[in-house]
């Protein structure tokens, strides 16, 4: 038993730098894609909720397209398609762009849900004390929507963090790709898997924990 543990320890020690490098790249992809997705979602929010069909129509069409096709195919489209048009972005950029686009589209619906779920009675209350529509939105609706959004947003971010693994399909040496190569080269597949799983679990648990903490803090102040 201790023989086994010793061997595993030696193996993991030799792989450790590579795994960490892969993990760092994973985090970088997520850190780059997440803000882009959040902003992209906001950008699409106004046209999505616009009353005019010729504005909301194409927006909805785009969102539905993103939501009903696999992220992998979208990444492939960007990676293999842009060179045809004369652009040669790096694999990293393609991955980040693909993730940001899809998650941005999902986020629009999350934002919309949160805003619409703030009861109409809140609008009534705000207008009744004389607030204009914009003021009401800024000071009454928005704060409450922000509170309701934290949960779903957190979940979406966790999915985003896991989706970084797809970028391995176009050759980026993030954690999944690194792990895959390590397994192919060594004989200790199970141990490497456990290591990779632990890395991902650390990341997703950290995001989940951070979101819950934020929810708690915000709830305290309301």
């Amino acid at each position: 038993m201790s023989e086994y543990l010793a061997q595993t320890a030696v193996l993991l020690a030799s792989l450790w730098p590579k795994l960490v490098a892969g993990f760092v790249l994973t985090v970088e992809i997520a850190a780059a894609a997440a803000p882009l997705a959040l902003v992209f979602g906001l950008v699409l929010l106004a046209p999505r909720m616009d009353a005019r069909a010729f504005v909301s129509g194409p927006t909805v069409a785009f969102i539905e397209l993103m939501r009903n096709t696999p992220l992998l195919v979208q990444i492939y489209l960007i990676y293999f398609g842009l060179p045809v048009l004369g652009f040669y972005p790096s694999e990293f950029t393609c991955g980040v762009a693909g993730i940001a686009l899809q998650h941005g589209a999902f986020l629009v619906e999350t934002y919309r849900g949160a805003i619409e779920s703030v009861s109409t009675r809140q609008w009534d209350a705000a207008r009744a004390i004389g607030m204009g529509r914009f003021t009401a939105f800024r000071h009454v609706i928005l704060p409450q929507a922000l509170m309701k959004i934290l949960g779903p947003l957190g979940n979406q971010l966790i999915v985003l963090a896991k989706d970084t693994s797809l970028v391995s399909a176009i050759g980026v040496m993030e954690l999944t790709m690194t792990g895959k190569l390590a397994i192919e080269r060594s004989a200790a597949s199970a141990e490497v898997f456990v290591a990779i799983a632990l890395f991902y679990l650390a990341m997703t648990t950290a995001i989940g924990g951070a979101v819950r903490l934020l929810e708690y803090r915000v709830a305290e102040r309301t």
Binding site: T164, S165, G179, F193, I196, L201
Partner: peptide, 22 residues
């Protein structure tokens, strides 16, 4: 539930791919 929801599906697929022969 906790473990599987915290890792990417691709990793689980690789696990399946390598685990069976192993």
């Amino acid at each position: 539930i906790f473990v599987l929801r915290g890792i990417p599906v691709l990793v689980v697929m690789f696990l399946g791919y390598y685990a069976f022969p192993a």
